[in-house]
Design a protein around this nucleic acid. Structure first.
Lengths: 222, 222
DNA sequence: TAGATTGTTAATCGATTAACAATC
DNA sequence: TAGATTGTTAATCGATTAACAATC
């Protein structure tokens, strides 16, 4: 519907990431058109929500056919920043940090891991994939030299804010926080959180309050 | 404010996990009382939101002093299901699945990993911590024998739904989905998503639309 | 007591859904 | 053409914030 880039609400952005993933999937299968109804059904939404969301984008559908997958994917990729490479460092090489530094999905989606850091001297010098773990003290130099855009914070909660401060001071523009702690950053630095343990706790809450176990099915008596 | 357990909105549950983490932190430092204002400040919220959220809980504060950290932590733990152990299996032992199976934070918070599975024959038989990777075909037997509550889905998107179906059929009560795909489950099974790559894309979007780089500070001229 | 902080109600704000004219 | 689907407006729903009496 051809609207110029304006602020998109976070609730919408969250769904846009899912639309992009969906588009990439169906496009690989050769699908050329999708409808708001089709997207909604596979993603568990209403078609109204999908059309509202897409109306934030510079794209238009066609009555009776829907949206062309190619252009829609490109528009989504552009607005989400998935149309270019991003330079990333990972700070904190525990199990989680290591996994992220090695996660194949990141390079596939344009995130280039170009440095891994830890505070623990026993880890410094060890290899993670092709990268060597360096001291956190080297973060500023590397961020500047390698023009790093994003810092991933995978340290324990107690260290998260101080690591964030180092990354911010060094000049990153965004932080992906995996620690279960709130991080304070100036407005010029974007922060998103992805807390797996918190998600697990949301799940256990949901399980406790699940609708009563539906009774084992029985044919209703005559 | 002593309200009996009722349905708590998801937006509130998400914050409750943060309150619990915060409470545990400050309690370790010996703090015995917190105020809604105090919580709000350290978590980047308003005190009004905090009080509204806590009003869903069976707890009460005291004018002028706030909330006692001990009881509040216990109530939060109970409502979030953090007051008991949960049996968990991880399906998909790529980098991410492996990291989660080894993540120290899980056992510390009551999640007992009691099985790890993969479809790749080359991975089957390998060890992950103390556990041996088994074939996905063994999932139903293990889930039943070990009374598994929760399945963590760490497989590629294309396999996510079929793994979910196996877990559901085997009788898990909750799924933690790490795949970038929507998962369909019956109402009796809870699902939460934690998609790190999606969070990274939200971040790159935010970076692109960051408020204009504030100009280097200068004293305003006379 | 005076002042701070709760619990709760009412007001605002934002997000989702419904509805429908426009259109291919 | 008839029917399906968009784009958009209006209605509903839910979440956040403001305000304030109650109270310790």
């Amino acid at each position: 519907m051809t609207k110029p880039a304006k602020i998109i609400p976070p609730s919408v952005v969250r769904r846009l990431t899912r639309y992009l993933a969906h588009l990439q999937e169906v496009r690989e299968e050769g699908t050329e058109w999708v409808s708001s109804q089709g997207i909604a059904e596979t993603l568990g939404l209403t078609s109204s929500t999908v059309r509202q969301d897409l109306s934030h984008l510079d794209c238009s559908g066609i009555s009776k056919r829907g949206y062309e997958t190619g252009p829609l994917e490109r528009v989504l990729a552009r607005v989400l920043g998935a149309d270019r490479a991003w330079r990333v460092v990972v700070v904190g090489i525990g199990n989680l940090g290591r996994a992220l530094a090695l996660h194949e999905e990141f390079p596939r989606r344009g995130f280039e891991i170009c440095g891994v850091f830890d505070a623990d001297p026993r880890k410094i010098g060890k290899k993670v994939g092709k990268l060597v773990v360096r001291s956190i003290e080297e973060v500023p130099a590397v961020v500047r030299a390698e023009k790093v855009d994003i810092g991933i914070i995978a340290v324990p909660p107690s260290a998260a804010q101080s690591v964030a401060d180092v990354l911010i001071e060094a000049g990153v523009r965004g932080l992906l926080n995996l620690a279960l702690t709130h991080i304070v950053a100036p407005k010029r630095v974007a922060v998103t959180n992805s807390r797996i343990v918190a998600a697990a706790m949301e799940l256990t809450h949901a399980i406790k309050f699940l609708p009563k176990e539906s009774l084992p099915k029985r044919k209703p008596g005559p």
